[in-house]
């Protein structure tokens, strides 16, 4: 647990939107903004936040599907954006991704067998016979029957497709899996199956897991540490029980209060829990991005961007007044 697996230093990703036309000027969109994060070998990091907060972009950056605009990402100590293409290609075996949409993440024109074999063929792991045997083996590990392998994705259920997605991700025996909302599109009973499978695979293979989700109860269940993102920035990073005991950042507190839970205390009839709209990411507020929605905002929040700073043991927060707010709440 003590070895750093992935380290992000000042990572940012800026898109330019609205350009392309002859007359419109492109405006910068800071999808990910100065993110510093280290992920330890074998740990499960939960990444939560609402749509547009940058959690998907961050996972694509970690997967090296995109290049960061600023900063560097060190995977097992190497900045793979600074090495030749072939070195990146070789390194890709080590980190794999699981996607949200079980159907859209599989090529509808390929059978499950070909989907699973593709990774092994790309890296020429063994003879054809060896690859064929390995495909059946990983399929079995992921709870698929041999007859599932000759089916096309549309002939399978969502849960089965997600099992194929997981099998594809572990085919190359990676050390890191980035799971981007892997159970959001599934029914509750299937969700449990896939979460169990992810937990099992992680234990068997000693995987590091980055688990991205908007569903707080799932993240609370699976993650060791949780990072909360808001408009491209990590605003709180804490061990799971510290965070779910009531976060230090007002946004985390709002998220936790808003999450629907099947317990009587969650019945808040008639009272609004959350305030305000998410500001446009094209025109974020100055200083602290959460300021316009924050009940504790003061003048300093307008002026100064709060840095992610130590709050307690292993718990960091990007809020100027976290201590004051905590005192006020008790």
């Amino acid at each position: 647990m003590s070895e750093i697996h992935v380290a992000l230093e000042g990572v940012g990703k800026t898109y330019h939107v609205g350009g392309g036309g002859m007359f419109a000027k492109a405006r910068p969109l800071y999808a990910v903004d100065d993110v510093n994060l280290t992920v330890m070998r074998g740990e499960t990091l939960g990444l939560v936040g609402e749509s547009g907060c940058g959690k998907s972009t961050l996972s694509r950056l970690i997967m090296h599907l995109e290049r960061p605009s600023t900063g560097r990402i060190a995977f097992e100590g190497t900045d793979l954006n600074a090495v030749p293409a072939n070195a990146l290609h070789a390194a890709r075996q080590k980190f794999q991704m699981v996607f949200q949409d079980p159907y859209a993440s599989l090529n509808a024109r390929m059978t499950a067998r070909r989907i699973l074999a593709e990774a092994l063929i790309n890296y020429r792991v063994g003879s054809r016979a060896a690859i064929a045997a390995r495909v059946e083996e990983i399929a079995a590990v992921c709870g698929l029957q041999p007859y599932h392998l000759d089916k096309y994705p549309h002939e399978l259920s969502g849960g089965q497709c997600q099992r194929i997605g997981l099998a594809r991700a572990i085919a190359l025996e990676p050390t890191l899996i980035v799971a981007d909302e892997p159970v959001s599109a599934l029914d509750v009973s299937i969700q449990a199956q896939i979460i169990n499978l992810i937990l099992d695979l992680q234990r068997q293979m000693g995987l590091t897991l980055i688990f991205v989700s908007h569903d707080l109860s799932v993240v609370a269940h699976i993650a060791d540490r949780v990072a909360v993102m808001y408009l491209g920035r990590i605003i709180e990073l804490a061990p799971v029980f510290d965070l779910f005991a009531g976060g230090a950042h007002p946004y985390t507190q709002m998220l936790l209060a808003a999450a629907p839970r099947p317990v009587p205390s969650a019945r808040r009839r008639g009272q609004a829990v959350a305030a305000g709209e998410l500001p446009s990411p094209l025109d974020p507020p100055s200083g602290c991005h959460f300021r316009p929605r924050c009940p504790f905002a003061r003048e300093r929040c307008t002026r100064e961007r709060p840095a992610l700073r130590p709050y307690r043991d292993g718990h960091t927060v990007a809020c100027h007044f976290a201590e004051d707010i905590a005192a006020e709440r008790t």
Binding site: T44, S157, V188, S189, Q191, A192, Q193, I195, N196, L199, D200, S217, V218, A220, H221, I222, V240, F241, F244, P262
Partner: peptide, 25 residues
Amino acid sequence: AGLLTALPLPGPHNHRTRLAEIPGA
């Protein structure tokens, strides 16, 4: 009962435990 037990629950004693699956389809 199956729906309720399949839900992940908060709390250290539930953390990273296997969830109750509903078998079959």
